[in-house]
Simulated assay, not measured.
Amino acid sequence: MLKKSEYFVVKQKAVPEVLQKVVEAKRLLESEKAVTVQEATEQAGISRSSFYKYKNDIFPFHDNARGKSITFVIQMNDEPGLLSDVLHVVADYNANILTIHQSIPINGVASLTLTVDILPTTGDSSDMIKEIEGKEGVMYLKILARE
């Protein structure tokens, strides 16, 4: 029998608004733009009860990624330099590439499986993934695992 996962990775657009506002309230508190929970929840536009109900259940992806590895698959055009551009993004964020596997391109599209170690010095892994997704020629990125 398969063990049920306690965590899920979902894109922001799939997360209910109240949970996004809880994350915003937490950011306000951490950045000291709000001193109290009351101030943070008012600025974020949620009730204190919603904040307390969900505050321990939602957090930005990068907050829980440090010290872990992330495996994702990327479908990208078979263009000179595109793989290098993707790897440079990983390097720019100070993440460490553990494994890399690229298939032989079919119809001008290559599949790349990449496992990246998120170090304590790595920048925001969510931003890293967004930057890779935004590269011209990258058609698809999906996170397969986080260990």
Results as ranks from 00 to 15, higher is better:
Asn94Pro: 00
Tyr93Leu: 08
Arg146Tyr: 11
Gly137Cys: 02
Ser111Asp: 08
Ala65Lys: 02
Gln43Arg: 15
Tyr140Met: 12
Thr99Trp: 02
Ser31Met: 12
Lys26Ser: 00
Asn107Ile: 06
Ile100Glu: 03
Arg66Thr: 13
Leu98Gly: 03
Pro105Arg: 02
Gly67Asn: 05
Met76Pro: 09
Leu82Ile: 10
Phe61Met: 07
Ser126His: 11
Ile118Val: 15
Gly108Ile: 03
Lys53Cys: 00
Leu2Thr: 09
Ser49Val: 15
Phe59Asp: 02
Phe59Gln: 11
Leu98Cys: 08
Leu119Val: 05
Ser103Gly: 15
Ile46Cys: 09
Glu147Lys: 14
Pro120Lys: 03
Ser84Cys: 07
Leu119Trp: 01
Pro60Arg: 11
Ile58Thr: 03
Lys33Ala: 05
Tyr54Trp: 11
Asp78Phe: 05
Ser50His: 03
Gln102Ala: 06
Thr122Ile: 15
Gln75Met: 04
Glu6Leu: 08
Gly45Lys: 06
Thr115Ile: 15
Ile100Trp: 03
Ile46Glu: 06
Lys33Tyr: 11
Asp124Ser: 07
His101Met: 12
Tyr52Trp: 04
Gly134Lys: 03
Leu82Ser: 01
Tyr7Ala: 05
Ser47Gly: 08
Val109Pro: 02
Met128Cys: 06
Leu2Ile: 09
Glu39Met: 07
Pro105His: 02
Asn56Phe: 06
Ala145Asn: 15
Tyr140Pro: 11
Phe8Tyr: 14
Phe59Cys: 10
Phe61Cys: 11
Glu39Ser: 05
Pro105Gly: 08
Arg27Gly: 03
Ile46Pro: 02
Ala44Arg: 03
Leu112Gln: 07
Glu24Ser: 05
Asn56Tyr: 05
Asp78Tyr: 13
Ser103Met: 11
Ile132Lys: 00
Pro80Ser: 04
Val23Thr: 06
Asn56Ser: 11
Leu29Thr: 05
Lys53Glu: 09
Val9Gln: 06
Leu112Val: 14
Glu24Ile: 13
Met128Phe: 10
Asp57Leu: 14
Ser103Tyr: 06
Arg66Met: 07
Tyr93Gln: 04
Phe59Pro: 04
Ser84Phe: 00
Phe59Ala: 12
Ala14Ser: 12
Leu19Lys: 09
Ser84Thr: 11
Met76Trp: 02
Ile118Asn: 08
Val15Glu: 01
Asn96His: 14
Thr36Arg: 07
Ser125Thr: 14
His88Arg: 05
Thr36Ile: 13
Pro60Tyr: 13
Glu30Tyr: 12
Ala14Pro: 07
Glu136Pro: 11
Tyr52Ala: 02
Ala65Met: 13
Leu19Asp: 00
Thr115Gly: 11
Gly108Val: 01
Gly81Pro: 02
Arg66Pro: 00
Thr115Ala: 12
Gly137Lys: 04
Asp57Gln: 07
Ala65Ser: 15
Val37Asn: 01
Val37Asp: 10
Val9Lys: 04
Lys4Asn: 01
His88Cys: 00
His62Pro: 00
Val22Tyr: 08
Pro120Asn: 14
Val22Trp: 01
